[in-house]
Amino acid sequence: MTTTLFDTAPDFDQPVAVLKHCHDRIRKQLKTMDMLASPAVLAATPDEVRQAAAAVLRYFEKAAPQHHEDEEHDLLPMLADTARGEDAALLARLTPEVLDEHHQMEQLWQRLQPQLAAIAAGQSSTLDGTDAAAFGELYLRHMDKEESHIAPMAKRLFSPSQMQRLGNAMRSRRGIALPEES
Rank of each mutant, 00 (worst) to 15 (best):
T2I: 12
T4Q: 04
T4E: 09
L5P: 06
F6E: 14
D11T: 12
K20C: 14
H21K: 12
H21V: 12
H23F: 00
D24M: 15
R25S: 08
K28F: 13
L30E: 10
M33L: 07
M35W: 11
A37I: 05
A40Y: 07
L42T: 15
R50N: 03
Q51L: 09
A52N: 05
A53R: 00
L57R: 01
K62L: 13
M78Y: 05
L79F: 01
D81G: 14
A83L: 01
E86R: 04
A88M: 00
A88I: 04
L90V: 07
A92S: 07
L94Y: 12
P96R: 06
H103E: 15
Q104H: 09
Q110K: 00
R111W: 00
P114S: 00
P114E: 01
L116C: 04
A117S: 08
I119R: 07
A120G: 09
A120C: 08
A121D: 13
G122M: 06
S124Q: 03
T126W: 13
T126A: 14
D128E: 05
A132V: 06
F135Q: 08
F135P: 01
E137I: 14
L140A: 07
R141D: 12
D144R: 09
K145R: 15
K145Y: 03
H149C: 12
R156C: 07
M163N: 12
N168S: 11
R173V: 10
R173H: 08
P179N: 02
E180R: 14
E181P: 13
